[in-house]
Design a protein around this nucleic acid. Structure first.
Lengths: 368, 368
DNA sequence: CGCTCGTGTTAATGCGCATTACCTCATGCG
DNA sequence: CGCATGAGGTAATGCGCATTAACACGAGCG
């Protein structure tokens, strides 16, 4: 380990990368200002003040002038390597580029992310799931580029947990959007579907409905489970009948949910229907179609509610009672959490409340 | 400059960043494999073979095994710093996140970019123009993060040329999409609007039209100018009357382009109209509206053509004669160009041909 | 007047990886 | 048998920046 004295030849890298040619480095700034590179770093990062070892005003000015005249800009890769941070936040979405249908749900989210990131002094870098280039020996390279940033947000359900776990295990700050408790120690933010769903049911009960039915699809996403749980909680809290009879589950609502069926339910005392929200909105569409086919007046003869926001193409129709996921707020919260993690905070999970939406599809039950 | 012998205390960084904790480095792999870090680097990068200094099979295997068992993944920041490359390609769009209206034009482009990038062994990183966080001393920081990648594609017209010039001057590989000759030495790819527009006119002339009118909006984007030039070229090449009378320019086509006006033109011998394509599609919409209002049969009594693709919301209507910008091809070409630049190639500009689209809105002129 | 404190600045070091000059053997050849 | 040769590896170095122990120099103090 002893330092070789001298006299040895010098191995090492090639003379000049020819590539970086023009960009001035801190060393150049230092030379021009007549100070050391360390001083340049201290001044430019403002660390001198923060650490209580201020650089004198004249020196400061010299450095800043030199930096400006040379047009110095820091190398983000070097910053990250040296300080383990470069004020960049990654956002990873597991979809090829930005597919049409997904965009609608991600866009408002990204708005919140961007605002909060700016507020926290971070810049954004986006990654997408596809591009499986030649990088990374083996398949383990896909998620690796996120290490360029100080931390990363993950969107979407298709996160390969093993790779994510790897990042988490390495202590890389990660926040997953949409609850995903699986990997231990993974921080996440999610919408509080349970409370929101409960609130919808409570509202219907408040209007006087005594039997409410949930229409849901056949997938087992956590989001669906949460909605059902909230729904049942709401029934119980309002003293309404719950149990399996209160939930209609179908793999193909469009087929199974007929007008006759709806009429039968009505005859049986059901006066309100609640549909879960999914990507396709199949449950909601089927419910509306069946009610229409049965020739029922919506707020008048039967009340409807949607546990979420209506699909974009139905935006023109009547506003359903239900709730809106506060996507921008979710994004902002995710950024706050991530910033906290980067700062060394714990890997917490946070639920964000949804906004109740009265809508125009629910009213008092019909009096036969 | 002489190396200090020894005995001095050691300044330097703090003991352990506590942050990177888990991630194994090449040094760990080397220790486990019983070789040097250099050997690990050589094996993992495949440089040993490329440089004709092969590492023996047994050693190779030991290294690969060790790397696999430790789950080694390279640090992209360190790679970039050391080798000036990490196989990452940046894509910068000067719009806040991914706005709705812009998406339609960027998405197909990104598809091409992604495919070609994968083919060339690159991964993608996306940047957006807004996020003006706290990074970068001064305002010059916005574009700086692209230096994380080996090179960067720039989309959109709103590129601040000064910052772009800066990157170019520094020798950073940059390719702008959509011609943008301004900064000297800036590589670009663009669609060949001139040739495509000329082709449309030629097609109309071939159908027998003797007077053709271009309807354009009042902006002065290069794309508009190119289209007009191609249009006029086409007229000239077909021996048709050109000059100012062949172009109708309006700041508000919806207002200025009336049914009466169209009738007057027809009476004056005009039998075909060509609209330029813009973000809003205002010229095309106005043209269609006026023709409808005049009660004219489109392929029968008057021929129409659009110098580009119809807006998304008109996708259902009749397919207009015109041309399609080969956005995926454009993206792919941009990536090829960028890869070439990263490899040390020159900063060239490339025009990509557009595909002629016969459509159903043009036919032989009516015989009065 | 010698010493302890501040203050301001710098030298030295490392982050993790790529690169390359050189070193060590085992062979081949005259 | 001695030396050139090549195969196989390794030590040392740097990329650009952040960090920190240590140094230089005055001022304040007993």
């Amino acid at each position: 380990m002893a330092k070789e004295a001298a006299g040895r030849a010098r191995p090492g890298r090639a003379p000049a990368p020819a590539d970086r040619r023009g960009r001035p480095r801190q060393a150049e700034v230092a030379r021009l200002a007549g100070v050391s590179q360390a001083t340049v770093s201290l001044v430019l990062s403002g660390r001198d003040i923060a650490t209580g070892r201020p650089i004198s005003a004249p020196t400061r000015a010299k450095v800043l002038d030199a930096a400006r005249s040379l047009g110095y800009v820091p190398d983000p890769a070097a910053s990250r390597l040296a300080a383990a941070r470069n004020n960049l936040l990654g956002v990873f979405s597991f979809t090829a580029t930005f597919p049409t249908d997904v965009r609608h749900s991600y866009y408002p989210f990204l708005v919140g992310v961007e605002q909060e990131a700016a507020a926290q002094g971070y810049d954004l870098v986006l990654f997408t799931g596809s591009s499986t280039g030649g990088a990374g020996a083996g398949g383990t390279g896909a998620l690796n580029r996120v290490r360029l940033a100080d931390g990363c947000l993950f969107l979407g359900r298709h996160a390969p947990s093993d790779e994510l776990s790897r990042l988490v295990a390495d202590g890389f700050p990660v926040v997953h959007v949409g609850r995903h408790d699986e990997p231990e120690g993974l921080a996440w933010v999610g919408a509080d579907y349970v409370s929101a769903s409960r609130e919808v049911v409570t509202a219907l009960a408040g209007l006087g409905h005594r039997r409410v039915l949930l229409v849901r699809e056949d997938d087992d996403a956590p989001a669906s489970a949460d909605r059902e749980r909230g729904f049942l909680d709401g029934l119980a809290a309002s003293g309404l009948p719950g149990g399996p009879d209160a939930v209609f589950r179908s793999g193909d609502p469009r087929r199974d949910l007929t007008a006759d069926r709806v009429r039968a339910w009505l005859a049986d005392g059901v006066s309100a229907f609640v549909a879960e929200e999914t990507d396709t909105g199949a449950a909601w569409r089927a419910l509306r179609a069946a009610v229409d086919a049965a020739g029922l007046d919506c707020p008048g003869q039967v009340s409807l509610a949607l546990l979420g926001s209506p699909p974009a193409d139905l935006a023109d129709g009547p506003v359903p009672m239900g709730f809106d996921i506060p996507r921008p707020a979710l994004g902002a919260e995710a950024v706050r959490l991530l910033a906290a993690r980067i700062g060394g905070g714990p890997a917490a999970g946070t639920l964000v409340a949804c906004a109740f939406r009265p809508g125009t599809t629910a009213g008092p039950p019909a009096t036969p």
